[in-house]
Nucleic acid binder design. Structure first.
Lengths: 114, 114
DNA sequence: TTGACACATTCCGATATAGGAATATATTAT
DNA sequence: ATAATATATTCCTATATCGGAATGTGTCAA
């Protein structure tokens, strides 16, 4: 079995650095494909292909404007990633609290029998 | 050029659902490979291979305990993902604020010439 | 209608999978 | 030393990729 398709979900789509760049760029303002090409210095077909992947997983939305295609990031689609990473937040957000807890005898290491 | 290696960074490593499951499972308590195998119902070689990927990008830490290998999630390595997704947080966290801002004339749509 | 422009898609090739099966390595028990 | 246990690695195969080049599609202008 090969690796899951990049279009299978946001996690896979976002694994590619250029796609993250695109999402960053499109977060503040909607932009045409040409804008993205000149801003990120990528080949036009490359950008179109990345946008296609992002589109398939709902990470960007498009609208036609004359012969321009105007893309914008759909932040809602990033939310699941945020939620997932957030489940680990407690481990770095409250370092002092955790150290304190351990000192108090909670959060002890489990033991492993031979 | 093929897709970037799963070991190239946390984003790629985490694209695989089973690897996320493993990270979830190892977040609260450190566990042996066998524990992971029986808990997640995966083949042992599969688990070892996923752990290898996670290890290569620093998402898990290991220590030997007899003939058991005890793995635990390293939350710090997830932090970059969290930070990245966080840059989009404002778009869903303060919906009302943003609607208000737009109503006040800020955040206007850019115009596109033909 | 023809041409220019903006973008999308297709075809190609090299490569990195992920699972399954088999095998190798390391540690403990007898 | 030998067997048993726990884990890791290797080999195999089918497939999805990403970039580059070429080509296709759609819209606007003259």
């Amino acid at each position: 079995m090969p690796r899951a398709a990049t279009t299978s979900d946001a996690f896979n789509a976002v694994a590619e650095p250029r796609r993250r760049q695109i999402l960053n760029y499109l977060a503040d303002t909607e932009r045409s494909v040409g804008d993205i090409v000149s801003r990120l210095g990528l080949e036009q077909p490359s950008v179109s292909k990345h946008l296609r992947v992002l589109r398939d997983v709902g990470l960007v939305k498009v609208k036609r404007h004359g012969r321009h295609m105007i893309y914008r990031t759909n932040p809602e689609a990033i939310r699941p990633l945020h939620e997932w990473t957030k489940t680990f937040e407690r481990f770095w957000a409250h370092q002092l609290t955790r150290i304190k807890e351990r000192a108090e005898g909670r959060g002890r290491e489990p033991s492993y029998d031979r």
